[in-house]
Design a protein around this nucleic acid. Structure first.
Lengths: 229, 229
DNA sequence: GTAACGCTTCGATCATGATCGAAATGTTCA
DNA sequence: TGAACATTTCGATCATGATCGAAGCGTTAC
């Protein structure tokens, strides 16, 4: 029986190294990072990181781009991010509920970006608030933005029209591995995250993919979204 | 920065062994299999398979159930199946498009079950036919069954009412790794597969998770669904 | 040109974990 | 109780691949 299993194992082996897993996790915010930064994240020497990175590029999980003497690495396609999302969801399930759950960095748990949308407590709080106001229906498997939701986002200055040739879904759920609850993703989720960055409600931290909620942001999320954050 | 990365690597390592990948792939149809059958699938001795299986159960990817002297293993939750779907989708992407694509077992490619719904050429053909008849809208990220689609399935004798307490989505896409196109999943997809098995349109092969399309089935899929199969 | 810097390649070492034979365990049935 | 069978445990062996020091390559800036 010839199956996809060998390719599956090969792919998994690529993610099975803690250094490479850290690198992939770091790149989940969709931005590009230098080889040095990724070496630091993976806690290995530059030469070891280089070896890992070349394997990831060779297998087309990452794309590399040269800018001067630096090389910037990023996830090759959103499909890779979606795969990692799924794996993290399962990875976050504690096989031994008796033992204390894996410690998660509080900043990560509080607020972060997940490829292009908000995640962590912030992402879930915004999603919950929108649901309670009837802006949104969200299931673990799918989501729907209501007429009221469209109006709400439009009033915030968000343009939800899809770019030409985009087949991206307007509204989809993404299972949060730290909160273990679905939050808003898709074009709508990305638009909200864009707005928040643009309005300085959140700021990307220089390292890691957690974000800082500003004072203005706290007020905005509470007043505009009615989020319990 | 404390993250989920170590757990991600640990999880991936579990899937990174060809034997375990074969076992997981075999269990993707959602049914339970004995340790012996899984040893055969993984091409290892029973004692090696036993070692692999105990690791998978320990990490809560599989559940085990004893019936007499046999032990039946199955995926612990649909979440695991969904994760594997995502990984297979990426695994099926050829990193070197110049080289010949990975050979896939023709029976697998033709028709198989994917957890609880149809996949392979058959799954995609049925989905395409339903789309062309306006029964279905399906995006890579989400799907919707139209009024005409509901009527169509009802006429086939399918009851789409959700069981109490079920939060499963009626209609969702599942990306097919052999066809690289989305096909119908969710409650509607499962209902179609159930109907097909019940009407003897398809038969599970004794080994593997590919299914055989019967003569009756070929006629039914063509006449009732208008599928090009 | 040359120095500085980022990154990669090479080579040797070392640790992890997959494997199977042999033997033990556990279940059913008579 | 004993025989048959499925599965697991134990123990020893072996292969893969992660690691980093040293050296090399390529780009930029002066």
């Amino acid at each position: 029986m010839q199956t996809i299993a060998p390719e599956l194992a090969e792919l998994a082996a690529l993610i099975a190294d803690p250094g490479r897993a850290s690198i992939l996790s770091r790149l989940m915010d969709g931005r590009a990072q230098t080889a040095s930064e990724l070496a630091r994240v993976a806690c290995v020497t530059p030469q070891t990181a280089s070896w890992h990175l070349s394997r990831l590029v060779e297998r087309a999980l990452l794309r590399v781009e040269r800018r001067g003497p630096r090389r910037f690495y990023r996830l090759a396609t959103p499909l890779v991010a979606q795969m990692l999302e799924g794996m993290m969801t399962v990875a976050a399930i504690d096989p031994h509920p008796a033992r204390p759950p894996p410690r998660i960095d509080p900043e990560m748990r509080r607020a972060r970006t997940c490829y292009d949308h908000l995640a962590g407590e912030l992402g879930v709080a915004v999603t919950d608030a929108m649901r309670e106001h009837g802006h949104l229906h969200l299931d673990p498997e799918a989501g729907e933005l209501t007429a009221s939701g469209r109006a709400f986002l439009r009033d915030l200055g968000i343009d939800l029209r899809a770019p030409a040739r985009s087949r991206r879904l307007l509204c989809r759920p993404c299972l949060d591995w730290s909160e273990r609850r679905p939050h808003l993703a898709g074009r709508a989720g990305a638009a909200v995250a864009d707005l928040a960055l643009q309005q300085d409600w959140i700021r990307r931290r220089p390292q890691g993919r957690s974000v800082e909620i500003t004072e203005t942001g706290l007020v905005a999320f509470r007043d505009l979204f009615d989020a319990r954050i």
